[in-house]
Design a protein around this nucleic acid. Sequence first.
DNA 1: AATTTTATGAATGATTTTGATTGGTTTTGA
DNA 2: TCAAAACCAATCAAAATCATTCATAAAATT
Lengths: 250, 250
Amino acid sequence: MITAERHRTILQLIEQRKIIRIQELVDELNSSESTIRRDLSQLEQKNKLKRVHGGASILHQKKEEPSILEKSTKYLSEKVRIAKYAASLIKDNDCIFLDAGTTTNNMIPYINAKNITVVTNSPSHLKPLLEKEFHTYVLGGFVKPRTEALIGQMAVDTLRKFRFDKSFIGVNGIHLNYGYTTPDPEEATLKSVAMKMGQNVYVLADHTKFHEVTFTQIAELEDAVIITNEADEDTINDFKEKTSIEVIDK
Amino acid sequence: MITAERHRTILQLIEQRKIIRIQELVDELNSSESTIRRDLSQLEQKNKLKRVHGGASILHQKKEEPSILEKSTKYLSEKVRIAKYAASLIKDNDCIFLDAGTTTNNMIPYINAKNITVVTNSPSHLKPLLEKEFHTYVLGGFVKPRTEALIGQMAVDTLRKFRFDKSFIGVNGIHLNYGYTTPDPEEATLKSVAMKMGQNVYVLADHTKFHEVTFTQIAELEDAVIITNEADEDTINDFKEKTSIEVIDK
DNA sequence: AATTTTATGAATGATTTTGATTGGTTTTGA
DNA sequence: TCAAAACCAATCAAAATCATTCATAAAATT
């Protein structure tokens, strides 16, 4: 095995296991202890890992996936303004579906309607929803790690039992040709059904979502009203030909 | 296990359990007491945890008065000891049902089995469950305010689709004539179905639950194994005639 | 082909980590 | 309060890990 190949493999293994022992590497790479030691020294020199007694560990300040917290701080004010407007659409006695995601989560504190019923696929929405004393239902099914969203056949089955006055959906991409998209096919299915079950359907999206396309299509543009802000006029006009857009002013 | 690996694991465990005894770490990490002691000193030096007599505890970022845990002479409360024992019953690859409630919640950090699948009716269990990287399913349905437990027909319907190797149930009363009881009829129904779907059924109960009766019956005594501690001998013997009891010693 | 450069694995003694032991201190329970 | 039990800090020898050196083999350069 060539040096570069070993280095690549070592970094991969550390990425997966966070910490790895020298002896493990000796066994798995069929190299001598000396060689592995040299590899680790070199990789540490290049700041690719941290040497620890007995092995090596992943770098502490390794760039993490944009966590839910970071995501929510970056575009906070924009997302909050969108959320606040969306919340104002909810009227007394409405039955609504609230998709998982930070934007929809931001809606909850701003909902002023009374006696509403909320269905969600996000366990993280439950706490704020119950604080508002809404009638709250959650879908069942597999809990997707990291995002804590419910997905899968079981969640979809549960969802089909409901009809909503309004559905509020988050998406990852909005595109003139490809419509609304999201990376995870399972999530796409669920969002799609949630949209079908809603009398009025709203997609919440900040300006970064426009012209973006991700892996799976949820629905066509005309299947929902887009709620956004700060998009440029050309973009707005392009999309206005296909569906309604409600633009919140600054 | 190398030093860095142990340190990482120790911090993870403390994050989950808030407090941990040296002896627990000795057992779970297969290291000597001396080594664990050194680890804890080093981690305290780096301000990653707080040393307490007999073990270590998580740092309080919020200015709280010294927690009950630190002050308490027994580090593990009655409920935690029951939970820990129950957790030890779970084996690799098991599919289990975990009822809502604090005792069952306490089980989660102590589950050491790998590759298990957990179904729960408690959204509050999800965070610790996902931290452990279990395959996690949650029932759907109406979310009962205050307790955040899922109840109702829809939850029961979802539940019926599963079969469990083991079901862990919390109850409010255990009585020689009236069996297991709980105040809310809807909850009782769900617990009852969860018990039917389990190959092995365990009821977790501290000594205060014995001879108590509440509004709705969940099941007969013989439908479950009781896990408890510190109950007096007469009580234990009375119940032993009807079903199995596993008593945790001090 | 001859020479230089680079990579490898074994051997070395130095350094760090580990677990057992000792004796002192704190906690517990009566 | 007191004695037993549990816990702790300090020490030390054994084990594991480490940096260094050296000889050989492979690759690159001339």
